[in-house]
């Protein structure tokens, strides 16, 4: 599903590499947790997967798409196959819950009828029924993150990238979000999660990849958080 082969990313000639010859393979339907201190290279890795950045060297293949052969005008199509969730939610502030989720389908060219039947199901899935007409500023942090997850999964992507989705949430809401991600993973989506929360990492007992100074320093099948 996701293959990185000796991927290096250097932002400028003078700086050290954000990622240094990183190789990893993630199977379809896997739930992988990526841990590491700030500056370890987690965000760079995600930016490479969403093609916000190009690697300095190495090969990336996601869902059978070789990024070396990816043209600029095909990047939107690639991104429609990858769901992304951020720590700061990144919702459209002037749009309601329904519109935020529907937006992901509208840009993909789905008809209004399809949108009207799909969006309520996903809103139901993330537990936001009855809040369709609310604007993001009228919701709690946990609810906003649910909207972001609904938007990310509404197109049924094969991969969901969640970059510190619990970073701004209290423990109770954090676990709600993690349970939701597990549910989505159970439906067949590969989930790639980054977190600094040791409790979540230790209790989930999933594959844990540890990044340190741009290199993979650990890859455990049922790992735990290492300081």
């Amino acid at each position: 599903m996701i293959l990185l082969d000796r991927v290096t990313k250097t932002y400028s000639k003078d700086s050290s590499s954000a990622l240094n010859r990183v190789s990893l393979f993630i199977e379809p339907r896997e739930f992988v947790i990526l841990v590491g201190t700030s500056g370890a290279g987690k965000s760079t890795l995600f930016k490479l997967l969403t093609r916000e950045e190009k690697p300095t060297s190495g090969k990336i293949v996601v869902g059978g798409i070789d990024y070396d052969n990816l043209k600029d005008n095909n990047i939107p199509m690639l991104r429609r196959k990858i769901g992304v969730v951020f720590q700061d939610f990144k919702l459209l502030p002037q749009r309601t819950v329904f519109e935020n989720v529907a937006f992901a389908l509208e840009i993909a060219g789905m008809t209004n009828r399809e949108i009207k039947s799909t969006v309520p199901k996903v809103i139901e899935l993330v537990g936001l029924r009855g809040k369709e007409k609310k604007f993001p500023h009228q919701l709690s942090g946990g609810e906003r993150q649910r909207v972001a997850i609904a938007r990310a999964v509404v197109r049924q992507p094969k991969i969901l990238i969640a970059d510190e989705p619990t970073g701004n949430l209290d423990p109770r809401h954090s676990w709600d979000i993690i349970r939701l991600l597990e549910k989505i993973n159970k439906y067949g989506t590969t989930v790639l999660l980054t977190t600094h929360n040791a409790d979540i990492v230790n209790k989930l007992k999933r594959r844990v990849i540890t990044l340190e100074h741009g290199k993979i320093s650990g890859d455990q099948a049922q790992g735990s958080y290492r300081q």
Binding site: T50, E52, N73, P76, R79, R80, A104, I107
Partner: peptide, 11 residues
């Protein structure tokens, strides 16, 4: 907002 639109696949 534009950055987010790009990331969810807007052309």
């Amino acid at each position: 907002e534009i950055q987010m639109m790009k990331l969810i696949g807007a052309d």
